[in-house]
Structure formats: C-alpha cells, structure tokens
Design a protein around this nucleic acid. Structure first.
Length: 637
RNA sequence: GCCAGCGUAGCUCAGAUGGUAGAGCAACUGAUUUGUAAUCAGUGGGUCGGGGGUUCGAUUCCCUUCGCUGGCUCCA
C-alpha cells in the first residue's frame, strides 16, 4: 500500500491509500468534472496516458478533448487508427510518420502505388470497424535495440531509420489491436473514443521533405470531439472556399490567367487594374511621407552585373536570361542592382544618409511549376520594393522605422500578421560576423518593440537574414508579404561608400524591404480578406447608378457626370431592366453604393443610396453623397 | 520538379460501357417602362484544353503536351 499525495494545480493535496494509481484514478479521486471528455492527464507538467501509473506525489490536471492539446491527442490517435486500417487493407504498405497538425492529421505511407481519393471511403470504413471494436491503446517502453529489431522484423524500414536517428536508449511503442507504432504519445484510452473523423485528401510527400528521397503517399484527415463540430468545421471550409480569390477574381472580373500566355502570369482586367492603381497610389503617398525617394530601374541587366551581385551564383535557377547583340542579359528577379548603381552615381556624404530608394519594381522569377497558385505565387510580379542605405549607426533606427511602417499599413487593412526571423541558409555569401551582426540587429529591433516572432532556421536570403511578415489566406495558409532584410554584402560587392565625418570612406549598410510584398499576392490575400467586398476607398467601382425607368436616364447621366467630376468611381446601369435585377447584379459585383434614381430622386435632385448589406440610406442631394464618399476614402474605410 | 485530381458554350455545370453533345445564367433580337437579389418570348453560340496513337469511327480508351487545384519536414 502506497500513500499518494495528489492535487490539482493551486489546490490542496489529497491523500489516497492505494497499491497503484493511474492518472484516471487520480482525476476520479479528485472529483474532476467531465471525465468523459478527458483524453489524457498532465502529471507534474507532463502529458500522460490516462492509464499511466502516477508517482506518489503528483499534481494532476485533466486534458480535455476540446482543448488544443486534447484535439492533438485525438487526431494523433486517429492517425494511428488510419495507419492500422491502411496496413490491413493494403498488405506490403510501409508506414512512416503520422503526426497531428493544425486542424487535423496526416500519415505518410510507402506503397507500390500512390493512394487515390477513391481509396479514402474504403479506409474510412475499415477505421470505423476498429473504432467500433473499441481497441485499447497500450503503451510499452522497450530498448532502442529491441525496437529496431522489432520494426526490422515487420519490414518497417522507415521506423527503423527514425529510431536510429533518435539518440535515446529507450523508445515507447503503442499498440492497438494488432498494430504497433513507434510513438511518444500520449494517446486516447481506446479507439472507441474517436467520435467523429473524416479523411479529406491525398497528396504526395517526400520522405523527410527531401525531394531526393522517396515519394510517399500522404493521406490527410481530421477528427473532432463530436459529429457536430466536425460538420461545423467542414462547413466552415466550404465557406472559406467561396472566398477563394481565384473564384472571386473571375466573378468580380479582376484578373485572369491564360494557357496561351503561360503559367504564373497574370492579366489584369479593368477592375483589377484599378485596384492595383489604388494600391500603388496609396503606397507612393505613404512612402513619400516617410522620406523615401521614387526610382526606377530597367527590367533586364547584363549578366555580368548579376555575377557581381552574387545572384548568378546563388539565384540563377530562379532567373530568366536572354541575349542581346551577343551579350548575355538577366531579367531581374530583384530590384536591388539598379538601386546600388543609383547610390554609386554620386559621391555620398554621411549627411546624405540614410538614402531610401523606393521602386514599384516588376520582377520575374522562375518558380517551380508545382508551386504556382492563383495570385499567391506567380512568376511575374510587382514588388513595393525599397533599399535603404545607411550608416551602421543608423541601422537599428531604420529597421524600427520599417517595422513601424509595416504596422501602420497592416492596420489600414486590419490585417493580423505573424513575424518570423529567417537565418543563414546553406547557400549564402558574406562573413559569419556580418550575418551575426545583421541577425542581431533584426532581433534587437523586434525585441525593443516587444514583438513576438518565430525563428525559421536557414531560410534567409542568400545575402542576409530577414524578418518575414506573414498573412493568412481564406484557408488559413500563411503567405509571406512584408519582409525586412539586412545586407552587409552587396554594399561590399558593389564597393559602395560614403565619406564620414573623419573624411574617410566607410561602407554603408543596406536594408532590402517590402511592405505589401508582391502586389499580386497582396491583392490575392486582400480579396480573400474582404471576401471581394472592398472598402469604399479600394473599391474599383464605388457607386453604381441604377435608374428605375427610362424616364430617369437623363437625371441618372447628370448624377454620373457629377460623381465622375468629383473623382468618384461611378458607373451607370441605365438598361431597360427591372430595378430588382439591377440591384441584384450590383450586389453580386459587391459595389459599395447603389444609387437608386426614380422619379422622386429626379424631382428632388438627389439619390437614395443602398448599401451592400441591403440597408438604404435616406435620400440625399448628390453633393452630400460626394462628401460622404470622400470622407470615407480619406479615412480609408 | 514530384504525387494525386481536374480541364465540355463567355460563366456554373450535366452527359454518353467509343456512333462528333445538353441545361441554367450571360449574349443577341423583340415585347415590356418597371422602386430595392433575377419580366417574358425567340435566336445564335462548342474542332468536349492542344498534339499523336488504337479503331470503320474518339470528346469518351492509350500516350504525350499545356494549364488549373491540393500537397511535398507543424517531424515517433
């Protein structure tokens, strides 16, 4: 008999006499509520199986299935059940890894053929059998050696490889029914605890993400505490798909792509052209306010210059080249080169710095065909790019200035964003000290502003580390938009200098940065963010004038002229159609204001605006409407 | 690039175990003069993504090519 001292966090301990106590026993003894929703237990800070024996002095805490951690356990267990089903249905399949991920789980398999969507229902059915059988998940710890020979005997080469890469003497195995998997756990008590799951899609995935290694077949799925929340999730996914910018881009006549033109190249229709124009105009103003100067460089530059910069050695596979008069030229994938030459064009004094060169620069990058998608990843795009050349002493302030700039702009669009620092990649140039200095400068700037950020090892640009700002699309996938990159190398390679107070030449530091990033990508995210219903200041068409009958056309035209003269983006729908039909079309085009013009409005010399949400504003004279829209634009609403 | 799925009228989608295709909306024409998410009627419209092969015959089967979508280290 052992005397157990068990407690919940911040609660008095309770004494229990028993031979042994599992996590579940402890929770029961402590009268924890909702035990049927508990999937695991945190014992002295560590997540454990409910069946795990606890120590004599333990602080226990239930992990509920609906918590983030609980869902992870549920989904991870479901992935094991899926692996079990797949092994049973497809003899000879080898299992690899199957973690829980955000919103679900996956499991990667190596099989003689890739899995297809058609296989999913069959696998689901088999999984249901195992769930119905309510098989317990049993944990066993064995030596690494034994685990290796066990998985070798099973022909599970990938598991063997995983174990051999672990530097630990013992590993844990989980068995449910006849299926044993290497796993850290914890897991559900039994398969019967899985109440709602769905296999969603299949995909290819390289073993360990390395394209030189085997192509595996991945099955994605998700699981929820109950059928209702699974359904809600799937419905939300469907809703999100309606916001897809490719779909809305077509519906709202914003852009198109063409097989005849080529992959990753965007054609902007009038509405999209206006959207770009509005963003560009906005950006130019914001940059001028902050002391940037507008510059412009050519699209193609001699290959020799790309050799100087290091792009030819480190970025060549992403570049397009052409030949003119027997000379090789590279189409620019970045805008920095001409900015370097602009700097060099005149002698610079420390009094001139910082120089902030801004360019809405068109670049071309050869992205691999498989990664292209809508506006979010393309081969030709315009960056709101700038290069800041400053003294080393000005670096911190300049980085802070850029971070503030980003904050201000994101606030205009009401975007939430996450930050990442990417460090030195394998293929890179520059000295260790410079990389260290640059990384330190970026981190310090973020720390000073108390910004949270993740670290993305080895994902920096070849010339320097960077801060990446990521925005989410409708399906919660993250895309890099703004970025701030520190660069000590290019100023060196181009032999940039300024004359300091001491009369000597000194090397400036360079910051590469974009705020929106690529206009294409940003607009893609914007469309999804607003579900196509842009705020008034960004709407390609701000007001649609709808006449009730042909009698009202002359006045409608007068209103249209007034609005156009006042620089409001207005269009008239004077067709011989019923009002309801015109309203419907304007509504589907998500025009912020529909101006209804019937006999009443014509007589009184004004308009009755209808909003996108279906509400009507009271009748107002045209000038008041103009004033209202101008105010909204000024406030960027 | 690799794996899977997809590509039929301007758009959204049907369809045939191989016998050259349909609907709704849009467009056009006419009627209607209309008050807040679709007025009615009629007409035209497609080398079924491109190329090649099998076949008496292919949009349907096979190969190839182009394009689109999802995914390709959230690590037992």
């Amino acid at each position: 008999m052992i005397t157990f001292q068990i407690s919940q966090p911040n609660q008095p301990a309770q004494t229990v006499e028993a031979d042994s106590l599992s996590g579940m026993d402890a929770l029961e003894q402590l009268h924890v509520k909702g035990l049927d929703r508990v999937v695991a237990v945190r014992v002295n800070g560590q997540a454990k199986d409910l069946s795990a024996a606890i120590e004599a002095k333990s602080e226990v805490e239930p992990i509920y299935v609906e918590s983030e951690e609980g869902l992870e356990i549920l989904r991870h267990s479901t992935s094991h059940v899926m692996a079990m089903a797949v092994k049973e249905l497809f003899p000879g399949v080898k299992v690899t890894i199957g973690p829980a991920i955000e919103n679900g789980f996956y499991y990667d398999f190596d099989y003689e053929r890739p899995f297809k969507e058609d296989d999913l229902p069959v696998i689901e059915e088999k999984m249901n059998e195992f769930i119905q059988a309510d098989l317990p998940f049993e944990r066993k710890e064995i030596s690494t050696q034994d685990a290796v020979s066990f998985f070798q005997s099973q022909g599970e080469d990938y598991k063997v490889e995983i174990i051999q890469d672990l530097d630990s003497d013992r590993v844990s195995l989980y068995t449910q029914g006849g299926f044993t998997d290497l796993c850290r756990g914890p897991h559900l008590v039994s398969t019967g605890k899985i109440k709602a799951f769905k296999l969603t899609h299949v995909a290819g995935a390289y073993w360990r993400g390395d394209e030189n290694k085997a192509m595996l077949s991945r099955i994605y799925g998700t699981a929820f505490p109950d059928k209702k929340s699974l359904k809600t999730y799937l419905q939300r996914l469907e809703e999100a798909k309606k916001r897809d910018h490719v779909k809305l881009g077509k519906q709202l006549d914003i852009f198109s792509t063409h097989e005849e033109i080529g992959a990753g190249m965007i054609v902007w229709h009038p509405r999209g052209g206006m959207l770009r124009h509005l963003l560009e105009e906005f950006e130019i103003r914001e940059h001028l306010k902050r002391g940037y100067e507008i510059v412009k460089g050519p699209l193609i530059l001699k290959t020799a210059l790309w050799e100087t910069s290091g792009h030819f050695d480190h970025y060549r596979e992403n570049m397009y080249f052409t030949e003119i008069d027997n000379q090789s030229y590279g189409i620019k994938p970045m805008n920095c080169l001409s900015h370097m030459l602009i700097y060099k064009a005149g002698l610079k004094s420390y009094r001139d710095l910082p120089k902030r060169y801004f360019e809405l620069g068109l670049v071309h990058r050869h992205e691999r065909s498989g990664v292209l998608r809508g506006l979010l990843r393309v081969r030709e795009f315009t960056q709101d790019d700038a290069h800041i050349l400053c003294t080393p002493g000005q670096l911190d302030d300049e980085i802070k200035g850029v971070l503030d700039f980003i904050k201000d702009i994101m606030a205009v669009f009401q975007f939430e964003y996450s930050l990442e620092i990417s460090t030195r990649p394998e293929k890179s140039i520059g000295s260790d000290e410079d990389w260290e200095r640059a990384t330190h400068a970026l981190k310090t700037a973020m720390d000073d502003q108390h910004l949270h950020y993740r670290i993305n090892e080895g994902d920096g640009a070849f010339y320097g580390p960077k801060i990446d700002v990521k925005l989410k699309d409708a399906l919660d996938r993250e895309w890099q938009c703004a970025t701030v990159q520190c660069d000590f190398t290019l100023p060196e390679r181009f032999d940039l200098y300024y004359i300091d107070k001491d009369g000597q030449k000194h090397r400036p530091v360079m910051i590469h940065r974009v705020i929106l990033g690529a206009l294409e990508r940003f607009i893609g995210i914007l469309i999804e963010h607003y579900a196509g219903a842009f705020p008034v200041w960004l709407s390609p068409v701000q007001a649609m004038i709808l006449t009730v009958t042909d009698r009202n056309i002359p006045f409608g035209e007068k209103v249209l002229k007034t609005l156009l003269d006042a620089e409001i983006r207005a269009e008239g729908d004077f067709r011989n159609e019923k009002l309801g039909s015109k309203v419907r079309e304007a509504q589907m085009q998500k025009v912020p204001y529909m101006l209804i013009i019937g006999d009443k409005e014509a007589e009184q010399g004004g308009v009755t605006p209808r909003l996108r949400d279906g509400r009507n504003l009271p009748f107002m004279v045209t000038d008041d409407f103009v004033h209202m829209v101008n105010e909204e634009c000024k406030q960027r609403r």
